[in-house]
Design a protein around this nucleic acid. Sequence first.
DNA 1: CGGTAATACGTACATTCTACACAATAAAAA
DNA 2: TTTTTATTGTGTAGAATGTACGTATTACCG
Lengths: 262, 262
Amino acid sequence: MNTRQEVLDFVHHGHERYLPHLSIDCVIFGYHAHQLKILLIRHHGHDNWSLPGGYIARDEGVTQAAYRILAEKTQLTNLFLQQFYVFGDSATRMNKIKTQETHNPTYSKVGVAIDDNHWLSERTLSIGYYALVDYLNVVVNPELLVDEFCWQEVTEIPPLDYDHNEIVQKALMTLRAQIYQQPIGYNLLADKFTLPEIHALYESILGRQFDRRNFRKKLLTLGLIRQLDEQRKIGPHRSPYLYEFDHDNYQKALEEGAVLAL
Amino acid sequence: MNTRQEVLDFVHHGHERYLPHLSIDCVIFGYHAHQLKILLIRHHGHDNWSLPGGYIARDEGVTQAAYRILAEKTQLTNLFLQQFYVFGDSATRMNKIKTQETHNPTYSKVGVAIDDNHWLSERTLSIGYYALVDYLNVVVNPELLVDEFCWQEVTEIPPLDYDHNEIVQKALMTLRAQIYQQPIGYNLLADKFTLPEIHALYESILGRQFDRRNFRKKLLTLGLIRQLDEQRKIGPHRSPYLYEFDHDNYQKALEEGAVLAL
DNA sequence: CGGTAATACGTACATTCTACACAATAAAAA
DNA sequence: TTTTTATTGTGTAGAATGTACGTATTACCG
């Protein structure tokens, strides 16, 4: 929603187009500078950050809605996207406490007040999706109601609006649990990557250390990655070789549940 | 819902009490006679079986709703229950095809016709929960609109109503993926069990064979189970020893992600 | 040209996995 | 009573894998 007109239409007619009581929130993981980060936005009139999200159209599949919302926010299609949980228990979701002093200050930007009876004020469950994106390819859409956005390291997430901290924690847990069943590697890394890069990626996701040498040995023995003849220049040190994923073997290993114990 | 009055109240006033567009479906796993089974019901007027389910009250948490529904169906509280996916993509869920020739023949039993504009006919997403229960403790509640129920082996699930076959498949996949992270053992078995019992349980869930001797060795080495001094009489063969779970160790192993490769 | 900091690659030992074989037991058949 | 049959209980050797390191190589900088 980039124009005033679109926002007004959404506020006044959204309930005809979208399912009420239900939304989608996205935890978008990116990897940069040896850190696992997520994309946060700050809505107009809000002090805290929150997760990007949206609603499900009445004639639209849930998965379809999630991809559409992601595309609207990041301009990315064909990314890795996976549903992981429905949030409908917390006090804020039960509408037991009001989350903002003045209701929905966000929409004051277009001169609309949202009262308690408005469809946007109803109790809303949220379906959590997590996405893995190539950090460098994301172009965040400057939506009218979003004042700013940022990429925040997962170990340093500030207090978020609503129950979004809980959603991020659950996404991280799911990511960790699924790292051996989902092709997480080649969704967070570029096509060609160095050994230190993928090594640090696994360390940041799982939050523990792996021995460099054994890590390489394991990936090569399992045939998950292939060493290329190219190297990358990285400043004042020895140039690391580039590697690429062996998609066939990777897929097979995931199905068999190969684990990097190390 | 056991009386005509309750059903009529539900049909006419349910939309005031429950969230629309959203339901809960339960895949209830039980283990008996060396087979992993799920509980199916057949609604009045339906030829096919389906999963037990229900709606979320407007002032009720989602988790709370799931436990309530389970208790209503099986009289069990304190069982293992876990949300695993939201289903909202299939053609039946998009209301693109009508699933029953005559709409909702179920309610004809109480003399009510449900037309296209009724709240029960609206597009409904479903939150899937799976439960692990001790087969012997389940007392299925004879609800008015449920003609019969059965325990069906997971390898022989008949065609179900709606997208319930898909839901069962996803539940099974999740169960298999989570068997090393969730205390699946002591939710499907009685407090005391024999080695062949737990051995067969793991074989049915994962759908593959484990060497008896290595299986025992692994469980004992990890300290997950403790051998007791009692034995069980099992007809014309050697009496197997009884075992019990070492809850503390089991919990620790799950957190560390101990895997039974075998 | 040596110093520094990063990457590349190898080797020995410990641990775990895997594939087996044979003894013990309960009850039914001979 | 003895034999048979099906099932459970335990042990052991060799293969495979995991773990903990050490040392060599490379790129740039001063």
